[in-house]
Design a protein around this nucleic acid. Structure first.
Lengths: 145, 145
DNA sequence: TTATAATAAGACAAAATAATCTTAAATCTT
DNA sequence: AAGATTTAAGATTATTTTGTCTTATTATAA
């Protein structure tokens, strides 16, 4: 049951790392993150570039460069992140992959999938990176393999 | 939010088609299904082979051959199908993909993911192919694109 | 101003998933 | 017995996702 792509997994873990570091105030080196989190540096760079282009982060080159939050982590929803990294229809897809599935022409799974999918969407649309970061920090939760 | 692989999508759709056809009594041609459902014949064949090898279906070659339920569709859980087609750990995976994530060493998402994942597992472990097929038949629900 | 450190961008490669093709084996019909 | 039909099995190809490598660009610092 793989819900998120590697891009989303890595992107979220990186953002949580950033919050955990200093509350998300200053530039964090991508190299440093890639090493601490056990993620390929170049791959992570591309993921964070997407988040930069989506105006969630800002980046800075040169010594002491890295990425920092452009929008406060208290205003970035988990849903915002996955929508950037996986597309806007992330929470809309049919469980059986049928293109036109919806209230008008539901597939056999539609009724119950709607519930589950809705619950996840709800969580993702009401939880911020800061919320998760707080929790992670307080209880010292894992961010790496 | 793609939860199931194409194999599972196709496999479930095929089983639902079989139930819808005659209540799952007689052999249904894979060719016929592939055409009705808009799925590649050879790919579907391989998927149904897996379900046959897992003893959920039986197959028969030659004219009027095909596949039929070995176990009654009223005794096949949705969970059984996806476990065959995607592996036994289907309902156990960490949202962030961290290998050891669990109660002892939870990731920041663990608490809420456990809930959602549990709800889905619950549905899959308490809903049979026959249940879904009944519903589909009654309301004439879609099985193809 | 030169060397160094860092991200940006895009080409390239590897791996996993999805789809197709070919040949074999089993079964039925005539 | 011969031919047609159908699944079985495995090889091959295509596509998508994931990961790596190289070169450029920007910034700092000596």
């Amino acid at each position: 049951m793989k819900v998120l792509s590697k891009s989303s997994e890595y992107g979220l873990r990186a953002l949580l790392y950033m919050v955990g570091k200093d509350g998300g105030q200053e530039f964090v080196s991508i190299r440093e993150m890639s090493e601490h989190l056990g993620i390929s540096f170049h791959f992570l760079t591309k993921i964070l570039q997407s988040l930069t282009q989506a105006n969630l982060l800002v980046s800075y080159r040169g010594p002491h460069g890295g990425v920092a939050f452009k929008v406060s982590p208290a205003q970035i929803l988990l849903g915002d992140v996955v929508r950037v990294l996986e597309g806007n229809d992330f929470f809309e897809k049919c469980l059986l992959g049928l293109p036109g599935c919806g209230e008008l022409a539901p597939c056999p799974m539609h009724a119950f999938w709607k519930e589950i999918r809705g619950a996840l969407k709800d969580e993702f649309e009401n939880t911020t990176i800061a919320d998760m970061g707080q929790k992670a920090l307080k209880r010292n939760l894992r961010l790496m393999p």
